[in-house]
């Protein structure tokens, strides 16, 4: 229902425990995508996620999109980016609309949270995921 959508915007303030877990998931994702970087520069289109990312050690939230290593999209269906920047989709519709450019997605579908990494995008940027994330790689065209 629409009220859930309105509430979902504030989900991070309501579900303290869920936010802690979400933090752990994003930490795993970002460390896997940038295994050698000491500081990962993250840009997000959702201001309410700023605290979450900043609380992850080794993550720096930047306001300028062009200096970011990765763009985390929660709302924007189409985004401009530099060719060396990664894009990560945090919504099913965002993933569907940007299949050709996103490196992966973390989103709700079929009543459960899903995590995927897109094979050809990983190959293009030369990333080999750790063993525990290999099963989340999908060959999506």
């Amino acid at each position: 229902m629409k009220k859930f959508i309105v509430l979902t915007l504030f989900i991070s303030s309501l579900l303290g425990s869920a936010v802690e877990i979400e933090k752990g998931i994003y930490k795993t994702i970002l460390k896997a995508l940038f295994p050698t970087k000491k500081v990962i520069k993250v840009w997000s289109d959702d201001p309410s996620k700023k605290d979450l990312f900043e609380s992850i050690p080794g993550i720096k939230v930047v306001n300028e999109k062009k200096i970011a290593d990765i763009l985390m999209l929660f709302n924007t269906l189409n985004v401009q980016r530099n060719s060396n920047q990664m894009i990560f989709a945090n919504g099913y519709l965002i993933l569907q609309r940007n299949k050709g450019v996103v490196v992966g997605g973390f989103y709700w579908q079929k009543g459960r949270p899903n995590l995927i990494f897109i094979k050809n995008r990983l190959e293009k940027v030369g990333i080999v995921l750790p063993t525990n994330l290999q099963k989340y790689i999908e060959d999506i065209k």
């Binding site: 229902m1 859930f4 959508i5 979902t8 919504g91 099913y92 519709l93 989103y107 709700w108 579908q109 079929k110 009543g111």
Partner: peptide, 9 residues
């Protein structure tokens, strides 16, 4: 009822 944005299917 189930939330469409959590179903997407």
């Amino acid at each position: 009822t189930k939330e469409p944005s959590r179903e997407e299917g």
